[in-house]
Design a protein around this nucleic acid. Structure first.
Length: 547
RNA sequence: GGACCUGUAGCUCAGUUGGAUAGAGCACUUGCCUCCUAAGCAAGGGGUCGCAGGUGAGUUUCUCUGCGAAUUCGAGUCCUGCCAGGUCCGCCA
């Protein structure tokens, strides 16, 4: 729709400005509805100031009927929409164009079975969920994958901890495991810990049966704990991978790399040679024959493409693993896999708490589960205040949607390239630029629509609040497109908040029910609701019926 | 030391392809519920956009046999250098 409008402008301006193209236009613009900088470009060439040129040309310009007027200001041409004419078109349903229908795997969350999930994990989990939704909305077939690193040094340490400490079953099991993991690091010196865990890992990886029962206990219970958390958060996966299943195949690949001359032996370990590509070398197989995370990831990635016939594969993993993915992709390229060009690492900055990174070792972290409890508790309080007649069950249901919505929005609204300072007090706020504010706006929309009968659309005089809404609607497809392209959910947050703010102003100033412009205003309400619903859906946030 | 990311209001963050007078939220001050939900709206103060320089006789990139093409009126946005913070450069994941 916007493209069409700009094309019409270009057609109208072509006679006076032969070189004009769509890059000369800006939407949205702070001045007018669409602004145009062509006079700066052509003025320069002709040696005339933009203002002079603009004033000279402005009278000769033909403006299409979709526009009401054009103004010169500081050398810019500012165009104003004829909202009455284009209103109906804007209010039509948003259609998703360019359905791509590719099969894409999105791997995210990947918690370690010796750390209960903390806020750091929330970022990959919410980002992964949202990115999956954004890609699915485009028409793609998405396979959501979770990868459990159930076979590595951390897990070996955990097994060691199991021998030293008792599980008391007083807390959620994954929390208790996290506690003894932290305790282990506090009480045992690093050298002993390393030595001991390496011994355990050797037995586990070679499947000798030793330590197997402890290992199973740790992994199964940790995952059980995670599943409960996912359920609370409304996060689902289509497939789960377990690192232990890719160890053997990984080792074979390492040997193949060795044979082909891409890797070399160093003191009995196998090292991949990437230096000539400007990437640091790294070990694929330890001297004792055990393998590393990268090694199994090689096998897993090949498996993904072969088994699922993927068009593309995406990993939502923190920026601390940027190098890992460069290495992974380079090695697969060396092995000749063509699909490697369709692999993408979506990285994000760390979540910090009071300026420093959270650490499961030190015990300095906030658990997602604890935060969920807190935020739902607050939700219950707030819902009760406003809806004292509802049943306890009803209240809790609503409170959960609001609380978890607040949490997800808080994490997602920061650009993923940045580190994110997490403030628990802010994350459970329900006012301002928050999830609940957006939810509240939708609930208000519904509350109006409930009391109104749909009539034929008639557009009368349009005031500035109504214009602002129409203009914002026009921006929606651009935002969707951009968030897809960059895979950045925070762009959706920004837009949703801006739209909700514009709507709230409209709501405050324009009575809908029983007004002269009822049919038109009702349609604006409906459209706002529809767009915000899509935004919240793409962010993975549910909408309560009441608030 | 090298690679990547970040630096915008007291705090947390937006800022489109370079575009006009740099914006929110929180916090603080003050108004607004007989009226579609006050989780809202209205008003107010608060800024060296880390610092410095550069952007058509130049530099960089692309392309070609050579010719050539792109990039400037305007920088928070692009380029270079410096400073500060973060992450990684483990036989961790």
């Amino acid at each position: 729709m916007l493209q069409k409008l700009i094309q019409k402008l270009i057609k109208g301006l072509k006679k006076e400005f032969p070189e004009i193209e769509k890059e000369n236009f800006q939407f949205p613009s702070r001045f007018g509805d669409i602004s145009c900088n062509i006079c700066f470009v052509e003025g320069k060439k002709k040696g005339i100031t933009p203002k002079e040129l603009a004033l000279k040309k402005i009278k000769k310009i033909e403006i299409p009927s979709e526009f009401e007027k054009v103004e010169e200001r500081n050398g810019y041409l500012n165009f104003y929409f004829n909202y009455k004419k284009i209103g109906k078109e804007i209010l039509k349903n948003f259609k998703n164009k360019e359905k791509t229908k590719k099969r894409i795997m999105v791997e995210f969350s990947n918690p370690n079975p010796c750390k209960a999930m903390h806020i750091g994990h929330a970022r990959t989990t919410f980002l992964g969920d949202s990115i999956s939704r954004i890609l699915k909305f485009q028409g793609n077939e998405i396979i959501r994958a979770n990868y459990y690193n159930d076979m590595g040094k951390q897990v070996a340490k955990m097994v060691f901890a199991m021998q030293k400490y008792k599980i008391e079953n007083k807390k959620k099991i994954d929390h208790e495991l996290a506690d003894i993991y932290a305790k282990l690091h506090k009480e045992i010196d690093e050298e002993t810990l390393n030595k001991k865990s390496q011994e355990i890992l050797y037995e586990l990886e070679n499947k000798t049966g030793k330590f197997e029962s402890e290992w199973k206990f740790v992994v199964q219970n940790a995952i059980k704990g995670f599943e409960e958390t996912y359920k609370n958060l409304g996060i689902k996966f289509d497939v789960c991978f377990y690192e232990n299943e890719f160890k053997e195949e990984g080792k074979k690949i390492a040997l193949k790399l060795l044979k082909k001359g891409f890797a070399f032996k160093h003191e009995n370990s196998i090292v991949i040679n990437l230096e000539k590509y400007g990437i640091p070398n790294t070990v694929l197989v330890r001297s004792d024959g055990t393998t590393l995370y990268l090694t199994s990831d090689l096998a897993l990635t090949i498996y993904k493409f072969e088994k699922f016939n993927l068009a593309s594969s995406i990993w939502v993993v923190g920026s601390e693993q940027n190098l890992h993915f460069r290495q992974l992709f380079k090695i697969l390229e060396l092995l000749g896999y063509k699909w490697i060009t369709n692999c993408k690492h979506i990285s994000y900055g760390i979540v910090t708490l009071r300026g420093s990174k959270m650490s499961s070792r030190s015990g300095e972290y906030i658990l997602i589960d604890d935060l969920i409890d807190e935020v739902v508790e607050k939700g219950i309080e707030e819902v009760k205040k406003r809806n004292p007649d509802l049943s306890e069950r009803e209240i809790k249901k609503i409170a959960k949607k609001i609380g978890i919505g607040a949490l997800k929005y808080d994490i997602l609204k920061t650009d993923r390239d940045r580190n994110e300072e997490f403030n628990p007090n802010k994350a459970i706020k329900f006012e301002g630029n928050t999830g609940p504010y957006i939810q509240y706006t939708v609930v208000r929309c519904n509350s109006i629509l409930k009391n109104i009968k749909e009539k034929d659309l008639e557009i009368g005089k349009i005031n500035k609040f109504e214009k602002e809404l129409l203009k914002k609607f026009l921006e929606f497809p651009i935002v969707i497109e951009k968030s897809r392209e960059k895979l950045k959910p925070n762009l959706i947050c920004n837009y949703a908040f801006e739209l909700a703010t514009i709507f709230s102003k409209f709501y405050e100033n324009c009575k809908v029910i029983g007004s002269e412009n009822e049919s038109f205003r009702a349609k604006l309400v409906k459209k706002t609701k529809e767009i915000l619903e899509i935004c919240l859906y793409l962010l993975g946030i549910e909408i309560p019926e009441k608030m």
